[in-house]
Write a protein that binds this DNA or RNA. Sequence first.
RNA 1: GGCCCGAUGGUCAAGCGGUUAAGACACCGCCCUUUCACGGCGGUAUCACGGGUUCGAGUCCCGUUCGGGUCACCA
Length: 552
Amino acid sequence: MADWKQVAARLFPDVTRTPDDLEALYPPRALAEGARVTRIAPSPTGYLHLGVFFTALVNRLTASTTNGVFYFRLEDTDKKREVEGGADDILKGFNDYGLTIDEGFVAPGVVHGDYAPYQQSQRVDLYHVYVKSLVEQGLAYPCFCSEEERQQAREAQEAAKCRTGYYGPYAKCRALTPDEALARIDAGTPCVVRLRSGGDESRRIAFTDLIKGKIEMPENDEDLVLLKSDGVPTYHFAHAVDDHLMRTTHVIRGDEWISSVPKHLELFRVLGFKPPKYAHVAPLMKEDGGGKRKLSKRKDPEAAMHYYASEGYPADSVLEYLFTVVNSDFEDWRRCNPDANRAAFPFNFKKMSVSGALFDLAKLSDVSKNVIARMTADEVTDAVLAWAKDYDPTFYETLAADPAFARGIFAIDRGGAKPRKDMAKWSDAPDYAAYFFDGGMDDGWELPEHLKAADAVAVLQAYKVAYDPAADKDAWFAAVKALCEPFGFCPDVKEYKKHPDDFKGHVGDVSTILRLAVTGRRNTPDLCAIMQLLGKDRVIARIDRAIQNLSE
RNA sequence: GGCCCGAUGGUCAAGCGGUUAAGACACCGCCCUUUCACGGCGGUAUCACGGGUUCGAGUCCCGUUCGGGUCACCA
């Protein structure tokens, strides 16, 4: 009569270490009381998803605010879904947004830390040590069921209207004796290793989620797969082993995991590990036909962090917005600390939303406008240039041809106490700056309805005479004002409002005529500054063209 | 369908048994203003529904409805 020890030995002939050995190899961390160890553990299945980034941010904040450690572990146990270079994309994304990683994979090609390896595909020996031990104890067993068999069992369960899954009486291989198991291993039948669950579906297990509060669920009674037939662990098992061995104190992850917590708790129990604290983060949602749904990697371009770079949202804007979603009191804090570094924000689980928040691009825009409004002309120019180089080569050429002129464009109305908020993202820049370039001005503009072309022509002709390219802002305005009365416009807006019928319009209308002639638009920054930047020749040429257009 | 979570304006949300139910975005109006902006002030608009408990319920309990998540050798 064989026993489970023999089965374990047959299953894992190369495993010589014991759980105690590993315990010694990866000792508890020497950290101060209260320091939290957190991690992000993405799988390299493609580009960096906004949701992953968001979760990483919460992990980062949790570690930072407690002087703990935030590490990056690669969950590359699913070779089928793996994407070449996926890990580097994710890491690069973190780096781009200034999200620093303390340990594990910290940058593309850079890994360090005392709890290595940080890549699950390189940790299989470790997992096997524990599985072997569980099999020896009779707490896990090999299962030889084929996909077809499981499928059939499932259909039978559905027909009988009972819970589907591999548990209790439906766990066929659970009944195998060590001898039977040995025979099938020797016959070369592929197998997985399953947990022999001691759970009871009718009992309930309670735990406290740091975000959602107390949660109660039926115990797990499923004989979940620990090791797949290729010897690689499932997420559940890897989670228990890795987070224990890496001494994670707080597991912060997407709330799609919440229903697996009973499984995880059972695993920690049978392995003799102290379970971590859990915090399950609600997903970012998107409005979709009246309802809302989780941001989808496939359907929604804004689910990719890359989207924000290509649209030209400054990293700072994205972060600033994400913080408003992370903690509901962030905006209050920001109002009180307008210049403070976000790292100083006192992050708190209790201020996190329990249910999914709609990702609001309009709000992002507003936040971003404020961020950009605080930047200097040089910063804006550099950022626009950097963005254009990658995403709008034509615009880049245009700007790069005359950097000083480019800088001049973005310097207008910037830096004062009342900054303009014209741009929410760098991709707004080409349109914003279009009329500064001769080919970019739209000549198809029309006068506001209450103004007559003849009056406009008269104003423009007079302005040509009065125009002084060297005039400062006051002189410039005086010249505009002087144009009013001769042509029936009121130089004083208040006065005009008292007697609107006495005038053709007010000084604002005169400005509008000039603005349209020079820029082709009704909305622009300070006209005086624009004209100075444009220079005399261009201004005169444009006024002439306007006069001609209006005269036709 | 089973299990779990949730529900305050169009959106993000504060609220922890007694409030005129904060604030932000968006929208609208007014003011300021050389134009355009910025800014300031104001406005429209919310406690999903039904039962309890209570002197009193957005807040506590139970149902209903709706929304989300999850039920793999994926994570």
